[in-house]
Design a protein around this nucleic acid. Structure first.
Length: 566
RNA sequence: GCACCAGUAGCUCAGCAGGAUAGAGCAUUCGCCUUCUAAGCGAACGGCCGGGGGUUCGAAUCCCUUCUGGUGCGCCA
């Protein structure tokens, strides 16, 4: 239930001559200060129309105001401060979430329409770095969010499984590779072969030609080249899946770069047909002057297609195949220009749906202030970070809760949860410098803090020996203290939080909600004795249960697991 | 040089469909476990919201300008 809407309507009874419902709704604000009630309405805007000073106007409105959900209206200067009826609102909110925990906040604005999400997209034969983590977890969270709003997300792992580097890799494997070693440790071995290739290249530049030849063979469908390529791809994917399992991420499609090999000719044909392709310095380009952009390079001098050609083919394929409502690309912000060009070319091609393509850009991770680079060894491997986080979580458990039953499982949930949450809690556009100690922190605004809060809530319910089914979603609750009230208000705000997270494609908004929830609950926990006998005990238990449900749902959206005990 | 993103407490960041005294976490100092998990709670300390103009009853928030940092700018993806 949206209380802001109700109050908007109640106010409109007096103000409809001067302000529209929408105006009133927009003016109503959540006061930062608790002393200013639950909702506040400033009257400055009405001064001219009423020919009175705002303070007097506020008084007049308050005198004639009545609403079922408002308990009290205070006038402070030019502001009307509304205090909601705690019992009515608490009862409503708690019953809402308790009666349908997994669908709380759901809506059907998506009407089942598809939203393909291009995410993760690691390169075959290379280890996944922290950069891939960002794309993976942001994409995963967005698909959860979008799905809750009734859309059908299509998680696409646009694998980097094509390109001249595979010619080099095959060359390196033919020269120095050993099947056993690759089988035992595919990515590590292949990556080392690739690095070795580049080292040897310094003294034997002719190897470059050998690499080119192998890639040519691969393109022409040569059997040996294709078999090796497929093998590398399969082995790599197996390895990636280990990480995806740990992150709880699955995909609906693994159509990567190679998938579009036979779909680029059509793009070139289409561009020619529409007379958009022009020659420039021997290459084929689409001019984008009217967008103030550099020309998009479609074909190289040697006739080979390029990155943007492939992405045009992918965009078109996704539109045809998925009839998408919106199409998301969770790719680093260093590629903003590329996507701007991509949309511009689609626009010139006459595809109005280019407006539905959104580049969900995210900030870059640097190491010691330098950009990550696989070649220069300036890279943080995702698995190493996860392992270290789990190790530290394990140490923490041994220290704080040594008698815990399923220590290893919980350590995994807490360690991985810390890393994922850390990645999602800030505005996705922020750059940050890699700092392991910061990422693997368990205190303060962290994933483990949220998990811990939920575990404490569950622990109370356990101690109370109350079965969750006792709360049937139809009870009356009474909560009078300010601590539980702020918790209730946060639960109430969830649907608007969800809405904002969707509109901005910003998972951090969910993470912030989880942190606020945890903080509000921990204050409540420190100040209110739930298990003490008294008239509000049942209501408090319901609140505790609702908090556990809310936190679980927040974490689920972010792709973070929640242990019942820790 | 041009374009995009960002500049808020010592550090990491919220707040930016303008609103009432600018908020967290970390770090530092000090309190709180014979009572629901102290991975917690509380307190103290800490701010010309990069600088300068403008719009407005009101600007961290909108506009202009300037400085600083990051990123990108045709034959990689």
């Amino acid at each position: 239930m949206d209380y802001k809407k109700i109050i908007t309507e109640d106010l409109s009874a007096q103000l409809s001559e001067h302000l529209s419902l929408e105006d009133i709704y927009q003016l109503l604000e959540n006061p930062k200060n608790d002393d200013h009630g639950d909702l506040a309405f400033p009257t400055f805007r009405l001064a001219k129309a009423f020919r009175k000073n705002p303070a007097e106007i506020a008084n007049d409105i308050a005198e004639n105001f009545s609403s079922d959900v408002v308990e009290k209206v205070n006038v402070v200067g030019p502001y009307l401060n509304f205090y909601l009826n705690k019992n009515i609102v608490s009862t409503q909110v708690l019953n809402d979430i308790i009666s349908s925990p997994s669908t709380y906040g759901n809506s059907n604005v998506g009407e089942g329409k598809n939203i393909p999400i291009d995410m993760s997209s690691p390169n075959i034969a290379k280890p996944m770095s922290m950069g891939h983590l960002r794309s993976t977890v942001i994409g995963n969270a967005l698909s959860n969010i979008v799905s809750k709003l009734g859309f059908e997300p299509v998680r696409i792992n646009h694998l980097g499984d094509w390109g001249t580097q595979f010619g080099r890799l095959i060359t390196a494997y033919k020269l120095w590779g050993e099947e056993e070693k690759v089988r035992a440790n595919p990515i590590k071995e292949l990556n080392e072969l690739y690095i070795h290739f580049h080292e040897v290249l310094e003294t034997q530049p002719e190897l470059e030609d050998v690499g080119r030849e192998w890639f040519k063979k691969l393109e022409d469908g040569d059997q040996e080249a294709t078999e090796l390529w497929r093998w590398f791809r399969d082995e790599s994917l197996n390895e990636f899946n280990k990480v995806y399992d740990r992150l709880g991420v699955t995909f609906d499609s693994h159509n990567g770069e190679s998938f579009y090999n036979d779909k680029m000719e059509e793009i070139v044909d289409l561009l020619e047909e529409k007379e958009l392709l022009v020659e420039d310095q021997g290459a084929q380009v689409v001019r984008l002057d009217e967008f103030d952009l550099q020309p998009a390079l479609i074909k190289k001098q040697d006739g080979a297609t390029l990155y943007i050609t492939r992405d045009l083919a992918a965009a078109l394929f996704r539109k045809r195949n998925y009839e998408f409502e919106q199409s998301l690309y969770v790719v680093g912000q260093d590629q903003i220009y590329h996507f701007t060009q991509l949309k511009a070319v689609l626009n010139k091609m006459g595809y109005e749906w280019e407006e539905d393509i959104h580049h969900i850009s995210f900030g870059l991770i640097s190491i010691d202030g330098e950009k990550m680079s696989t070649r220069r060894g300036k890279v943080v491997l995702l698995e190493e970070v996860l392992d270290e986080a789990v190790l530290r979580a394990s140490n923490q458990i041994n220290e704080k809760n040594p008698s815990l039953a399923n220590k290893e499982e919980v350590a995994e949930q807490v360690g991985v949860g810390a890393v994922v949450f850390h990645d999602l809690q800030h505005d996705r556009r922020n750059n940050f410098n890699f700092n392991l100690d910061e990422i693997v922190q368990f205190e303060g605004e962290t994933g483990p803090y949220v998990q811990y809060t939920r575990a404490r809530a569950l622990s109370i319910l356990k101690k109370a020996e109350i079965d969750p089914s006792y709360f049937d979603g139809e009870k009356e609750y009474s909560l009078t203290d300010s601590y539980s009230w702020s918790v209730v208000k946060l639960i109430q705000s969830f649907s608007s939080v969800l809405d904002r997270a969707y509109r901005e494609f910003e998972p951090s908004i969910i993470a912030k909600h989880a942190l606020s929830m945890a903080q509000a609950f921990n204050r409540f926990y420190a100040n209110v004795r739930v298990l003490d006998e008294g008239p509000e005990k049942e209501s408090r238990l319901a609140l505790v249960y609702a908090v556990a449900l809310m936190l679980e749902e927040d974490l689920r959206l972010l792709g973070v697991e929640a242990p019942d005990e820790m």
